[in-house]
């Protein structure tokens, strides 16, 4: 990914009434990728998103949207952003259509045709003339997306997009988001405290806790190329441990009649061959995939997650 980043967050800090809510975070999001913003309640996800879209001031640092500083050129930066911050709140006493007309008037070059196009895209055609107060949460979520996509932005920001949706709705939302990134080349930022959901939808995940960015991980890299814990059920175990001593990055461990060792995928058959050569009886080999969940728990210290 050597493209020009769509969003750059540079050494951003936010202090509210003397409390450091966000502490010197740094990351970039590129066109065509879905970036997940993961963290427990109160980690500072919404605060960061509010700063990206200019709802909150930045105490220190800089945020660039396609090279435009949100601080100094709000208009130029916001032209590229479509966002839903927290809940998809709309004018309830207006129809879905008038809500879109309202936001179309606030943007450049959004004509009637584009409004109809977006309505079609989110599948609200049949109910668009009804008042928003008669909409279900899922329909409001769709209208929120329609509003965010109206001016064809390059960056889509969704704070907890699946909040309150049923499983079918979540699947559909995931599909939407992947589509927008892959087919339309949008940079998408989503936040969530549900890891399982993020794993299915994101290309990269940044883990935030207590206002600090603990790390950014490539989702697929994590599940295939990284090391994983492999357990060998062998006989005699002690001897096997000695044979495997110089493999993997860490020392093998003994547990009952099993030997546990951290290996990459490619090292597993090599280790098995070694054991066979030394006439060790192998009864079973089990790779315990280290999931994002584990990484997440490791990174955030497990206990403190609400």
């Amino acid at each position: 990914m050597q493209k020009q980043p769509a969003v750059e967050i540079k050494q951003v800090t936010k202090v509210i009434r003397g409390r450091k809510i966000i502490d010197n975070i740094n990351f970039s999001i590129y066109p065509g990728e879905v970036f997940g913003f993961l963290g427990p309640n109160g980690a500072g996800k919404t605060t960061t998103i509010r700063m990206i879209v200019g709802l909150m001031g930045i105490t220190d640092g800089e945020i660039l949207i396609k090279g435009n500083s949100i601080k100094t050129s709000h208009g130029a930066a916001m032209k590229h952003i479509g966002a839903i911050v927290e809940n998809p709140e709309m004018y309830k006493y207006l129809s879905g259509y008038l809500n879109l007309v309202h936001f179309a008037r606030m943007s450049d070059n959004v004509d009637k045709k584009r409004i109809d196009e977006v309505i079609e895209l989110v599948g609200l055609k049949n109910r668009i003339q009804d008042k928003v107060k008669t909409y279900s949460l899922g329909m409001r979520q769709r209208l929120g997306i329609a509003q965010a996509l109206l001016h064809s932005p390059d960056v889509l920001i969704l704070d907890e997009p699946t909040n309150g949706l049923d499983p079918a709705g979540i699947r559909e939302m995931r599909h939407y988001i992947r589509n927008l990134a892959e087919k339309e080349g949008l940079a998408v930022i989503v936040s969530s405290h549900l890891l399982s959901e993020m794993e299915l939808m994101c290309d990269r995940i940044g883990v935030l806790q207590h206002g600090k960015m603990l790390g950014v991980q490539q989702v697929h890299e994590l599940s295939s190329e990284q090391t994983q814990m492999v357990s060998f059920q062998v006989e005699p175990a002690e001897q096997a441990a000695i044979i495997l001593r110089d493999m993997g990055s860490k020392k093998p461990q003994m547990k009952d009649d099993k030997v546990l060792i951290e290996l990459t995928r490619d090292e597993i058959p090599v280790a098995a061959a070694k054991l066979t050569k030394e006439a060790i009886n192998i009864y079973g080999i089990q790779a315990e995939t280290k999931t994002l969940e584990d990484t997440f728990l490791e990174l955030t210290g497990g206990k403190e997650i609400v």
């Binding site: 200019g54 809940n87 606030m106």
Partner: peptide, 15 residues
């Protein structure tokens, strides 16, 4: 109070 301010202020027009 309805939260719509967030949509109003995240478009191109200045505050």
């Amino acid at each position: 109070s309805t939260g719509t301010i967030k949509l109003l202020l995240t478009k191109t027009p200045s505050r």
